[in-house]
Nucleic acid binder design. Structure first.
Ligand SMILES: [Zn+2]
Ligand SMILES: [Zn+2]
Ligand SMILES: [Zn+2]
Ligand SMILES: [Zn+2]
Lengths: 175, 175
DNA sequence: GGTATAGTTGTAATAGTATAACATGGTCAA
DNA sequence: TTGACCATGTTATACTATTACAACTATACC
């Protein structure tokens, strides 16, 4: 298993370094790792990684930025897939349900999950200058949110936690 | 100052009880209090609480649910205000900038701030059954988020923290 | 192989959300 | 009263998302 070996041998940059999106890194590793893990996961769940779904995931994995549904759709259409919104929204919904992609509500856009498979309710750091989106560990944040909810008897079933701001590089460049 | 007296005399339900939206309460107090505080705040900042802005705020204050921009717009239009989207979006943007309303990104809708004036980056608990939205204290949550961001040198300038789930009442009713 | 079944994709039509650009009109201070 | 500034009205358009239905494909069972 190539992807697993690479992952174990040197650690998974995407998983271990939440700031990866903001720094120079071997993005080919991010892509190959996430794609490989996605395929294994989907198969293990008895589901099908169809051409459309795979292609959408690949497109999202090309960048650490969030991508709008219609940008993905244009890409799909140019490659001979359907060119109507449901084609891409269905694939995106599937990927999101399977934890392979996330919806960034602040941007009305989607981003590939950089560490699929691990149960997580992630948080996102969005740089307003370079538009990069980093998926950050949200265990503590999510815990705090659930604690607040618990106080009033509210059951948290899902959450979206997004921070807009500026990454270290962009702040340095501005100063 | 009526609003302030009422607020001080018996405490402000909206400010002190994050679950207020989910329980029976004197909603007239929420409305009067928030509206009064809003007017004082805006005046203190040298800004103008115009008829459109005031009316939009009043409409948002009618309920603890989030209200879509076009619902507000229809109300405005029926009352003789302009009937084009910018009319309502400008008012909503103004109210949000002044901390008098919040955008619930998960719902593409807006809700009045129930404790304007206090510096806050709130979190929201959204009940999927009754659609009520409670503004919960997010100091701890926001702190956790900023801690994560700090680790990677990211500066948080704004955040949206929303939890979808079920309130105590609705959960009880379902069981 | 045939055939029922469920799941996936394609397509048309429509609904819902938001902004750009420009014109008009009110407010307030020199 | 003039000018600067802000707010509102209006037109047009862009962007995001869903409903409904038709066609196709893999699969499982006979
Ligand atoms: Zn990873
Ligand atoms: Zn940046
Ligand atoms: Zn209050
Ligand atoms: Zn409820």
């Amino acid at each position: 298993m190539g992807w697993k070996m690479a992952h174990d041998d040197q650690g998974c940059p995407g998983c271990e370094a939440p700031d990866l999106a903001f720094s120079r890194h071997d993005h080919g590793h991010c892509q190959a790792d996430a794609l490989g893990r996605a395929e294994v996961l989907i198969a293990a769940r008895g589901l099908r990684m169809t051409p459309v779904r795979q292609r959408v995931l690949e497109i999202l994995l090309e960048t650490h930025r969030a991508v709008g549904a219609y940008v993905v759709l244009d890409r799909l259409a140019a490659e001979g897939f359907g060119n109507q919104p449901p084609v891409v929204y269905r694939a995106l919904d599937f990927l999101e349900e399977q934890g392979l992609a996330h919806r960034i509500r602040r941007l009305n856009a989607f981003t590939a999950c950089m560490h699929p498979g691990e149960a997580h309710a992630p948080s996102f750091l969005i740089c307003r200058s370079c538009d990069l989106v980093a998926e950050a560990p949200a265990k503590a944040v999510r815990g705090a949110l659930e604690a607040v909810a618990l106080m009033v008897g509210f059951t948290v079933e899902g959450s979206n936690i997004e921070a807009m701001g500026q990454c270290a590089d962009c702040r340095g460049r501005a100063a």
